[in-house]
């Protein structure tokens, strides 16, 4: 740096200041590109969205006519059920409830299956470990868009892989193939009496479990491999059973790695547009719709831009609440396990 030369002369006040603030200038210069771009295309649209949510913005306003200010009407339209006039069978609270149920049911299965499979793959002396580990990565590396459209295809009632496979299994025990023209997506009556969930829920659940557990297995495997083996040796010398070892050693040791992965899984599943939109398309009767698929429909099919803006803002606050709640729960249980 030029500092050495300058110190021989007496630095002016300006030079002094210039020198002292070089770090600050550097900081803001390095921040500038990102914040300029984000202000233009991220923050500004989000503030604009807040304003839009208070107007009746629709197709008629795309040509430049300003929309009318309607206050909180769009929000009442969503909560109060007025939106059901445009989207038959729409009910906000049912939708939110289903979205939460969908998220937790999936992530619980992902984590439990993921950890158990990781533990199984970690058994010492198991044959062909490497092969299994390689194959089990596949659902994670295939784009979820492709996975979703492929599962949709597999659930086709007439020629889809699921029904064809079930029919050939049934054929072994003499059941007629006609019994396996299961209408996975369209059947309205719940398959299990007493459980108010359509068959299509179980279809999207199966597809999303297929998609989701390998990530948890990979994270858990990484954590399992870092557990020192002598912990288990000491425990078994003390007479701990393998179940006790699992709860006493494995679970607390992999917990720090599993929690961020679970949080990520929760948010990703909550917003799992591809699986719902492409497989069940929210059907039948909107029973498997989630918040983001409705948000997309409001823009894409209904062109109710003002309502869509209000809906998106609701999604934001729900996600915020979900994140804070899960954060609290994980923090609150921390001391318990450790």
């Amino acid at each position: 740096m030029a500092a050495g030369n300058m110190s021989s002369q007496k630095p002016s006040a300006f030079q002094d200041w210039w020198q002292k603030t070089s770090q600050t200038r550097f900081i803001y210069m390095y921040l500038f590109p990102a914040f300029f771009v984000m202000t233009m295309i991220t923050f500004y649209p989000l503030f604009y969205q807040v304003w839009m949510s208070l107007t009746d913005y629709g197709v008629k306003n795309l040509k430049g006519t300003p929309p009318n200010f309607v206050g909180l009407d769009n929000y009442w339209y969503i909560f109060g059920g007025g939106l059901a006039a445009k989207l038959p069978n729409f009910n906000f609270w049912r939708l939110l409830g289903f979205n939460l149920f969908w998220t937790f049911s999936n992530v619980i299965v992902h984590v439990v299956a993921g950890v158990l499979i990781a533990v199984l793959l970690n058994v010492e002396g198991l044959w062909a470990k490497g092969i299994y580990r390689t194959l089990f990565v596949l659902p994670m590396v295939i784009p979820s868009l492709v996975i979703a459209v492929v599962w949709r295809n597999m659930f086709d009632p007439n020629f889809g892989a699921i029904n064809v496979a079930l029919a050939s299994l049934g054929g072994l025990v003499g059941m007629a193939p006609e019994m396996f023209q299961i209408r996975w997506m369209e059947q309205i009556n719940p398959p299990f009496p007493g459980i108010p969930l359509p068959l299509s829920f179980f279809a999207v659940l199966i597809a999303n479990i297929w998609l989701g557990w390998p990530f948890m297995t990979i994270v858990a495997t990484g954590a399992l491999q870092s557990i020192p083996k002598d912990l288990y040796e000491a425990a078994s010398m003390d007479g701990a059973t393998s179940v006790q070892q699992f709860w006493g050693i494995t679970v607390p040791m992999i917990r720090p790695a599993m929690i961020p992965a679970t949080m990520l899984g929760l948010i990703m599943t909550f917003n799992q547009f591809n699986v719902i939109f492409f497989i069940s398309n929210g059907g039948p009767l909107r029973q498997t719709e989630i918040l983001v698929t409705i948000a997309f429909r409001l823009v894409n099919e209904q062109r109710l831009y003002g309502v869509a803006a209000a809906f998106s803002i609701l999604i934001f606050f729900i996600l915020l609440g979900l994140t804070l709640a899960t954060n609290r729960i994980t923090k609150a249980t921390e001391s318990y396990d450790a």
Binding site: L46, Q49, M52, V292, Y305, F316, L319
Partner: peptide, 21 residues
């Protein structure tokens, strides 16, 4: 905080303003 906040907004929940703008 600004960055984290916008990270939480799913892409689909920004379609309406981006489309209009």
């Amino acid at each position: 905080l600004g960055v984290i906040t916008v990270l939480m907004v799913p892409a689909i929940a920004t379609i309406a303003p981006l489309f209009v703008l």
